[in-house]
Amino acid sequence: MKKYINITGALLLIAFAMAACKKDTPIDEDGLLITSRQECFVSNFEMLGTDYVTVRTKAATIDTTAQTINVTVMFGTDLKNLYPQFTLAQDCKLDPKITGRTDFSDLANPRVYTVVSGNRQIRKPYKVLITVQPR
């Protein structure tokens, strides 16, 4: 009898331990935490050249209503090899991800980056509009 009690006790312990390991916080396909936050905007924008130095002539203008980022870059900037850097509202993520140098040379067709809110329910596309400073 005592033997059976021990076995049952051990089984119960294992079951409890397994239940305790179960995650109850959801994560998305990138392994990022999905939160309850609904904020969805770009708070700051930077643009770096191949030398990792800014190519902006002044701070970028971010219009969160029109969902545009206007940035003026220096004359002579290599538009094919730029590193954009976005600062987003808390828990947001960017789609597509920035994995390296990006080609911004097609000024007629500005690149679009979508900000996804912390709860992953709201998606806001931002256009990056580049103006090259005249000589």
């Binding site: 220096m74 004359f75 000589r135």
Partner: peptide, 20 residues
Amino acid sequence: YTSTFKHALVAPAADPMYLP
């Protein structure tokens, strides 16, 4: 110029706007 140009190294075949 009004923009920042100053010291430059340019390929001879570059766009003439970089070889003013």
